[in-house]
Design a protein around this nucleic acid. Structure first.
Length: 895
RNA sequence: GGGAGCUUAGCUCAGCUGGUUUAGAGCAUCUGCCUUACAAGCAGAGGGUCGGGGGUUCGAACCCCUCAGCUCCCACCA
């Protein structure tokens, strides 16, 4: 009798096996002659902590990697972290602020000192958390996007693109984050609907008399004024024109006139452009070239001055003339009063419009003209677009292929400079007399500068390096290349090293759809640019983890459970199951702790099966009983079928379905049917043959389950037999798909129906399981049924009869075989009759529909032969069943 | 404004080329059981006119049209 506890406790077991796997280098991967299988982790922020999204994402990666390893591939999962320029810098700034230190008071060097300190303190926590999950990463390969090697890759890539003319510097309208005080790429801006106001402002026509204040406000249609609608009145100080549609009759009189901007009294021209929608607002558009993308275009077209009225922190600058130094939103509020007081505010309406916010700091984005570095994308995008369109890179689920194509076909240049310190500093040096050199090192920059200026006396002190850093994604787009060979990116002459040759392209990339453009698309571009081809063959896009109310889990909402707390409560295997039980690729995962409970229950089930088996010893004296022989034969076939369909599920990235299949195989088929059949009586042991077969089946199931639940399967596998030190389930092979006999499966399914039929009768009649029954049948029964009813339904005797002569029976049908359970007085004839009547009605109706189909000439002539044959069989079966039911009915009547 | 997708049992989803589907699964629910591996369990049961309407077809959850609702992505309407 086993002394193991009836409840599985994961904590100590998980720790033990993770340490064991590490100790024996089982996560390690080096190039050899096996087929390679590589995954690079989407590097989490270096100072981040694990959240539910990571949990889902990394569980999927671990399942894929562990399975690949067990299929005999050389599996390599490369972990690492991202320096996350803006996110990390924001955290450091916040931390310093809490200590009363302003970033602006520090030198760049001093600030970086703090940032590195922060990174050392918090860096890598998330990787330790991944270990709790069971992640089988090759930790010796842990990368960091700001390690010295990696930084060299990034800088080299910049220099290379610059030399090719694919990077340029210029003044463009960019998304300005006034809180972080940096430019952002278009992808870093999120638009949200905001309840705002639409302000109708009066612009006086030049030469017309000025208003005298609120009381003297002219009527709306006054010829001396026009009315302009805007959501951002504070930008009027940057107005350099007013634009109307040339076809707009209402404003024909303004042609060639100038207008007076309210409060600051700047005289601006009226320009005409089709861009303006006469239907919107008043049909007059104020033009602020420095603070609106469209206005910028109008400004370029009409040669208007761009007056930048904002400071970098979002306060008004000297150029605004009024409200200087005040915050933009405060000015907006004040203006409403001040304009009204001046008689220049016609009306204010509530208005919903979309406003851009910084993805990182959540500050309202200010479109702003500024001098930034850009990557020219058109040429880079070409092969990356083709890769996906031509299916060299497959995206799961495939609906994202369209999204990808649309973005790539309309790609815009990428603003890569950030006004931050934490990151890769732009390798550009400005010359004393103007001009710039771009080089990998200061020394090379100096040499280039000397050549460019023809001045051999130039020194490093004369050069001024660009203050800005590169966008984080400008480094992470090199990830699948640089983690294997940091010398290749940006270096056309470099020969790829062994690692890159072997592992590249990687097999699968698992990530969230939200970074399809940020990261996935750009990695593909970088792959073609520097590594000769795409970086991964398959992209698996996960869904978003949501709470019960369907909200995205986020720190700010506080609706996300702490993954580590969940692991401590339920065990890592249970949480992994919870993540995978209901999340097909691309579908959101509505998370609920009950999913972890379900996982825990399953672990417990597995554990108890093990307790049962562990308590057995093979008995040499016993011959194998027929029921056990049949169970073994059946389960072997079922196992083969499952191995095949699980393989098929994996090919299609249907991980949840693969898991569910194994879940049911283990719980229903193995525990519920197989073990109940072969289980010897209490205190006895199974025969040698059955025992061996059971161990081997259990072993196969542990292998199949291991990628999903690595800890418990390893624990049980290690205890199932003597193992050598260093031996591990994770290094074992998956069961191979073999041919199997489908007839074995169908006969067994019929046998199950017989058992269920008898159990149903017991339940209905309230006959306890202990009371043995007799079973009569008319027709054919598979041997399996005869073999197992004794064990599973406590049937003492099974007898085939030509005709049922027992007077009082409960009866049921399995296919067309009639089964009778003699019950004497327990039978209520009327009840039985009603039951049969209902069944008869059902089959008669069904038969009519089949007959209708078959008597339809068009069906018989146009449907394929095989389909007609199926219908004929349905007809025969239904007829036979009806005959059998009628027979049962007759018996009931005659009795 | 453009594009993509979704709507099947109380919940989450399968249903792949229209016919072996007489619509399935897991969870939840209900009923009966502390049966000697497991009550985190066992046995049994109920639950759906496949979002509405129309069409194509011998045949529709599946194809077409239309209406309604939901989600996501992209876009410069002040």
């Amino acid at each position: 009798m086993s002394t193991l506890a009836p409840v599985y406790s994961p904590v100590a077991i998980e720790e033990k096996w993770y340490a064991y796997w590490m100790k024996h280098g089982l996560f390690r991967s080096k190039p050899d002659d096996r087929e390679p299988y590589a995954i690079v982790i989407p590097p989490p922020n270096v100072t981040g902590v694990l959240h539910m999204g990571h949990m889902l994402n990394n569980t999927i990666q671990d399942v894929l990697v562990r399975r690949a390893r067990m299929l005999g591939k050389n599996a390599c999962w490369v972990p690492g972290t991202d320096h996350a320029s803006i996110a990390t810098e924001a955290k450091v700034v916040e931390k310093l602020a809490a200590e009363g230190v302003k970033k602006t008071d520090l030198t760049r060097e001093a600030f970086l000192e703090h940032a590195w300190e922060w990174t050392r303190r918090h860096g890598g926590i998330i990787l330790e958390q991944l270990k709790r999950l069971g992640a089988s990463c090759d930790w010796e390969r842990t990368g960091f996007t700001m390690s010295p090697d990696y930084s060299r890759s990034v800088i080299r890539a910049f220099v290379d693109l610059y030399r090719q003319g694919k990077i340029y510097r210029g003044v463009r309208m960019v998304n300005w984050d006034p809180q972080a005080q940096t430019a952002l790429s278009d992808e870093e801006v999120v638009y949200r609907e905001q309840q705002g106001k639409l302000y109708y402002l009066r612009y006086r026509v030049s030469g017309a008399p000025a208003a005298e204040g609120a009381g003297a406000a002219p009527p709306a249609s006054h010829p001396d004024y026009i009315v302009v609608a805007t959501t951002r009145p504070e930008t009027i100080f940057g107005d350099t024109a007013v634009c109307v549609n040339p076809r707009d009759e209402r404003y024909r009189r303004l042609k060639g006139k100038t207008l007076i901007v309210p409060l600051i009294n700047r005289e601006v021209p009226v320009v005409e452009d089709e861009y303006v929608d006469p239907e919107f607002g008043t049909g007059c558009l104020k033009v602020t070239p420095a603070h609106d993308v469209n206005d910028y275009r109008l400004g370029e077209k009409f040669g208007l001055e761009a007056v930048d009225i904002f400071n970098d922190d979002g306060t008004l600058s000297e150029k605004a003339q009024l409200y200087v130094g005040q915050d933009r939103f405060e000015v907006r509020r004040q203006l409403e009063h001040d304009l009204a007081a001046a008689g220049l505010l016609e009306k204010v309406e509530d208005y919903v419009n979309k406003v851009g916010f910084s993805e990182r700091t959540n500050a309202a984005i200010e479109p702003k003209l500024s001098l930034q570095w850009f990557v020219r994308m058109a040429e880079l995008a070409e092969p990356a677009l083709a890769a996906v369109v031509d299916d060299d890179v497959l995206i799961f689920p495939p609906k994202f292929k369209n999204t990808y194509r649309h973005w790539m076909e309309n790609i815009k240049d990428w603003c890569i400079s950030r006004q931050l310190w934490w990151g890769h500093r732009i390798p550009a040096w400005y010359l004393p007399q103007g001009g710039v050199v771009v080089a990998e090192t200061p020394e090379e920059a100096l040499a280039a500068a000397k050549e460019k200026t023809k001045n051999p006396n130039l020194s490093l002190a004369d050069l001024r390096q660009d203050e800005d850093c590169l966008d984080t994604w400008f480094s992470s787009w090199l990830w699948p290349i640089a983690v294997f060979d940091p010398n290749v990116a940006g270096n056309p002459e470099a020969d790829p090293n062994k690692d890159l040759q072997y592992y590249y392209p990687t097999a699968d990339l698992v990530t969230a759809p939200e970074i399809l453009f940020f990261w996935v698309a750009r990695m593909i571009m970088a792959g073609y640019e520097w590594a000769g081809g795409y970086p991964f063959r398959n992209v698996y896009l996960t869904g978003i983890v949501r709470d019960r109310m369907g909200r995205k889990m986020s720190k700010s909402l506080g609706n996300s459970p702490d993954p580590i707390a969940l692991i401590e409560k339920y065990g890592a295997d249970s949480v992994r199951l919870g993540m995978l039980l209901t999340s097909p690729a691309g579908n959101d995962l509505p998370f609920n702790e009950t999913l972890c409970e379900q996982g825990r229950n399953f672990c417990n089930k597995i554990w108890n099966v093990f307790r049962l088996i562990k308590g057995w010893e093979p008995s040499n004296s016993e011959p194998q009983p027929e029921h056990a022989r049949i169970a073994v034969e059946w389960f072997a076939a079922l196992l083969c079928k499952t191995v095949q369909s699980v393989a098929d599920d994996f090919d299609k990235y249907r991980l949840s379905e693969a898991l569910m299949e194994l879940y049911k195989l283990y719980w229903d088929e193995f525990s519920g049917w197989y073990l109940e059949i072969i289980k010897p009586q209490q205190g006895r042991h199974p025969d040698k043959k059955t025992y061996a077969a059971t161990l081997s089946i259990f072993d196969a199931m542990l292998r199949l389950l291991h990628p999903f639940m690595p800890f418990i399967t390893e624990e049980l596998w290690q205890n199932l037999a003597e193992r050598r030190e260093g031996e591990s389930l994770m290094a074992a092979l998956q069961p191979f798909a073999q041919e199997f006999d489908r007839d074995v499966l169908t006969s067994f399914e019929r046998a199950k129906q017989v058992v269920s039929g008898i159990r149903s009768i017991r339940k209905e009649k309230g006959i306890p399981g202990r009371e043995p029954l007799t079973l009569l049948f008319r027709g054919s029964l598979p041997p399996a049924a005869v073999a197992i009813v004794g064990k599973l339904a406590n049937v003492e005797q099974v007898t085939g009869v030509a005709e049922n002569t027992e007077p009082l029976c409960a009866s049921f049908l399995v296919d067309t075989t009639e089964l009778y359970v003699p019950l004497g007085s327990l039978v209520n004839v009327e009840e039985e009759r009603q039951k049969l009547e209902a069944e008869l009605a059902h089959f008669r109706k069904f038969l009519r529909s089949v007959q209708a189909k078959l008597s339809n000439e068009k069906f018989v002539s146009s449907a394929p032969e095989s389909i007609v044959a199926i219908e004929r069989k349905k007809q025969r079966d239904a007829e036979a069943k009806i005959a059998s039911l009628e027979e049962l009915m007759n018996k009931l009547k005659t009795n």
